Amino acid sequence: MKISLLTIGVVVFLPFLCVLGNAQIHFSVMSYNVENLFDTVNDPLMEDDEFTPAGNRFWTKSRYYRKLQYVAQVIQAAGEWTGVALVGLCEVENDSVVEHLLRRTPLYKEDYQYCMTHGCDKRGINVALLYQRDQFRMLGMEELHVPTAVRERPTRNILHVWGEVLSSDTLDVFVCHLPSRYGGELASRKRRKEAVGVLRKCTDSLFFFRKSPKILIMGDFNDTPQDETLEQELQASPFHEDNLLEENRLYNLFYEASGSHKYQGEWNQLDHILVNGALLQEKQSFYVKEGSAHVFAPSFLLKPDKTWRGIRPFRTYYGFKYEGGYSDHLPLRVTFICKGVKW
Score class of each variant (00 low, 15 high):
Lys211Ser: 11
Pro213Phe: 07
Pro213Gln: 01
Lys214Pro: 09
Lys214Arg: 14
Ile215Lys: 07
Ile215Trp: 01
Leu216Ser: 00
Ile217Phe: 02
Met218Asn: 13
Met218Thr: 13
Met218Glu: 13
Met218Gly: 14
Asn222Cys: 05
Asn222Gln: 09
Asn222Leu: 02
Asp223Pro: 15
Pro225Ala: 06
Pro225Glu: 07
Gln226Ala: 15
Gln226Thr: 15
Glu228Leu: 03
Glu228His: 05
Leu230Gly: 13
Leu230Ser: 13
Glu231Phe: 07
Glu231His: 12
Glu231Gln: 14
Glu233Val: 15
Leu234Gln: 00
Gln235Phe: 08
Gln235Tyr: 03
Gln235Thr: 12
Ala236Leu: 09
Ala236Gln: 00
Ala236Gly: 05
Ser237Lys: 15
Pro238Cys: 06
Pro238Asn: 06
Pro238Arg: 11
Phe239Val: 01
His240Ser: 10
Glu241Gln: 10
Asp242Trp: 03
Asn243Val: 02
Leu245Ile: 03
Glu246Met: 00
Glu247Leu: 06
Glu247His: 02
Glu247Ala: 06
Asn248Phe: 09
Asn248His: 15
Arg249Ala: 00
Tyr251Pro: 11
Asn252Thr: 03
Asn252Arg: 05
Asn252Ala: 01
Asn252Lys: 03
Phe254Lys: 12
Phe254Met: 08
Glu256Gln: 13
Ser258Lys: 13
Ser258Tyr: 07
Gly259Gln: 12
Gly259Asp: 10
Ser260Cys: 07
Ser260Lys: 04
Ser260Ala: 01
Gln264Tyr: 09
Gln264Ser: 13
Gln264Ala: 12
Gly265Tyr: 05
Gly265Glu: 09
Gly265Arg: 06
Gly265Pro: 13
Glu266Tyr: 02
Glu266Gln: 13
Asn268Glu: 09
Gln269Asp: 09
Gln269Cys: 11
Gln269Glu: 11
Gln269Trp: 00
Leu270Gln: 11
His272Ile: 03
His272Thr: 04
His272Lys: 02
His272Asn: 08
Leu274His: 09
Val275Cys: 09
Asn276Tyr: 02
Ala278Met: 06
Ala278Phe: 08
Leu279Arg: 02
Leu279Glu: 01
Glu282Leu: 04
Glu282His: 05
Glu282Pro: 04
Lys283Cys: 10
Lys283Ser: 14
Lys283Tyr: 07
Ser285Glu: 11
Ser285Cys: 00
Phe286Asp: 07
Phe286Ile: 02
Tyr287Thr: 07
Val288Gly: 00
Lys289Val: 10
Lys289Asn: 08
Lys289Tyr: 04
Gly291Met: 12
Gly291Leu: 06
Ala293Glu: 03
